[in-house]
């Protein structure tokens, strides 16, 4: 019983996925604005901050006391607080940036007697917002990895490697999401949009190499606890999901499909990238169940009741 729900659940993994993908979308849109003198699709620019909002909702539901959620802004020394503040700023500035591309005659703006988006034609505002979005997007894409990497008692997470993996995954899922959004509303630059499969194929290649390296280093690594946690990915109970669902279906297959000169194959690749991103986070969060146990602690926990024992039911009646 004492081990029940003593670690994060799937909702935090989903929060990390949406926040990371949203952050990645902001970074890509900002880079295209600043260095490509163009913009991503309107749907993509709106979906980035919307993803982060969805992530926030999952984070709030993960809390034991959702109605006190505002308190997560209170400790500037905590990574979660830094993440919450940065995500709030990113959501606001990203929506302001995305609004620049909203048609003045679109609903509900057409109901107003004036155009409320007065900054629509301010080029400098677009550049300034892009700079803010680039910085906040990078922080949002990275902070879950920093949060996990600092936890010394969780052998699979500890160390800076997990930060790089989360940043990379955020960028690749953000790029894939932008590509899919190009099917919904046309991107101003077809050249940029056509280049996206190549970008996420390159990022997927890095992801594959980095993950193989990460698992290999952990397995042959510093402590027996780290090796044991990694073995669950390579040959244990998480190997089917880790190697099959994430590395093969969520990384290798989309890598191959993205290189095919076929938009349908590339769209499937982008969808698989998103599947791989959420699978990876679910598995990584689940890996946090493995703690650095103290002498005899594991055996002690095994002896504790599970909650379904007959004598407990008897006492309840």
């Amino acid at each position: 019983m004492s081990n029940k729900h003593q670690s994060w659940g799937w909702m935090l993994a989903v929060d990390f996925f949406f926040a990371g993908a949203g952050g990645g979308m902001l970074v890509l849109a900002a880079l295209v604005e600043l260095f490509g003198n163009s913009r991503m699709s309107l749907a993509g620019n709106l979906l980035g901050p919307a993803f982060m909002c969805i992530g926030c909702i999952f984070l709030i539901f993960e809390l034991g006391k959702p109605f006190r959620a505002w308190r997560v802004f209170m400790n500037p020394k905590a990574i979660l607080t830094v993440g919450a503040w940065t995500m709030s700023v990113a959501i606001a500035t990203a929506f302001v940036y995305a609004a620049m591309a909203l048609p003045a005659k679109a609903f509900p703006l057409n109901l107003l007697p004036f155009d409320p988006i007065v900054w629509r034609d301010w080029v400098w505002a677009g550049k300034l917002l892009a700079v803010v979005n680039l910085i906040t997007g990078l922080v949002v894409a990275t902070y879950p990895g920093v949060l996990l990497g600092r936890l010394k008692g969780r052998p699979f997470w500890t160390g800076p490697g997990i930060m790089a993996l989360f940043l990379l995954s955020s960028l690749v899922t953000g790029t894939a999401a932008h590509y899919l959004c190009g099917f919904v509303t046309e991107a101003p630059s077809v050249v940029v949009w056509n280049a996206l499969p190549g970008v996420f194929a390159l990022l997927l290649m890095f992801q594959l190499v980095l993950w193989i390296g990460y698992l290999w280093i952990k397995q042959s690594g510093a402590t027996e606890n780290e090796a044991a946690a990694a073995r669950r990915w390579t040959s244990g109970d998480r190997s089917l999901a880790g190697k099959g669902a994430f590395l093969f279906l969520g990384t290798l297959v989309p890598l191959v499909l993205a290189l095919l000169p076929n938009p349908a194959a590339q769209a499937v690749a982008a969808a698989l990238v998103l599947f791989g991103g959420v699978t990876m986070r679910l598995l990584v969060i689940k890996s946090g169940d493995d703690r650095t146990y103290l002498p005899g602690e594991k055996r002690y926990n095994l002896r504790l009741p599970n909650g379904d024992e007959a004598f407990l039911h008897k006492s309840a009646h």
């Binding site: 003593q6 034991g64 006190r68 959620a69 936890l151 008692g153 703690r291 103290l294 602690e297």
Partner: peptide, 25 residues
């Protein structure tokens, strides 16, 4: 002040913190 985010449980290397399922904290 606790929101039950479990950050402290995850941060404690000694497993000395517990989620109270009744209170959520």
């Amino acid at each position: 002040k606790c929101v039950g985010c479990l950050s402290c449980i995850m941060a404690c290397p000694y497993g000395a913190r517990h989620h109270n399922h009744a209170t959520g904290t």
